[in-house]
Amino acid sequence: MLDRSLRPLIAVRVMAPPAQYDLAIRDLVSGVLNWRMWGRLGWQETKRRYRRTVIGPFWTTVSLGIFVLTLGILWAQLWKQVPATYLPFLTSGMLSWVLVSTLITEGCSVFTSGENLIKSLRFDYTILTCAVIWRNLLVLLHNFIIYIAVMIYAGVPVTWNSLLVFPGLLLISMNAIWVITLLGLLCARFRDVQQVTTSVLQVAMFVTPIFWSPDQLGPRFATLVDYNILFHFVELIRAPLLGRAPSPWTYVMVGLCTLIGWGLTITIYSRFRRRLAYWL
């Protein structure tokens, strides 16, 4: 009989398979470094939105513009604000919020929508993560038109502080990598997480100072803002866009969040990266 006796015997260990921890780190590092791949994926996706439409992704820009303009004027009336200061505040806030919240919601579907790829190829999943971030940065670039228009109308000066928008975007992207990886993994295993995230973000939009400014809240509820991490991520680009520097507290919170988040994600990713293909 051929049977089991013919199974090749493996006496010599050729090499040790890499530990799970190494695999996860390797995935993250070489995924991020593979910019040609995620650059192309994000770019193609953006290009696709232009196909067969006249203004493509600018539709989101247009609807955001209408939103900001109408509500900006209305709320300026309601809350007795000066439109020339309220409009720039709302515009830059919404721009930042759209970036931050879309990164989070799209993070939920990053792996589930890549199911076909994950099940047929071995590649660094982080490429998908980076593609999401890159695509959203391109959308932000589109939305920037509203910002420029409003700034010209309101006469907000460009200062040296405005340059802080770039480290801000870098910090947001760095955090987006772990948030998307973690949420993508969670949502692949527990499909409810996506729904939970969407509902939480819906409420968060009103709780986070985007429509109103933190000093309107008064000292009693100050903690609601001080410890709201979403607020700090928004501040990271909103403040520079308004010509201010974000407060040191914002950088402290974001820094903490980066450290804790990455630590958590690397731990979880090391453990469960190998299970992802099974969950899809």
């Binding site: 050729v14 398979p17 076909n116 099940k119 047929s120 190829l121 071995r122 299970r275 293909a277």
Partner: peptide
């Protein structure tokens, strides 16, 4: 192809794997 990691046991792959499933 390295798409699935084994639940138990070990896989040693040396060389570039090209899977053609679909």
């Amino acid at each position: 192809a390295g798409v699935y990691e084994p639940t138990q046991g070990r896989v040693f792959i040396e060389g570039k794997v090209s899977p053609l499933f679909n």
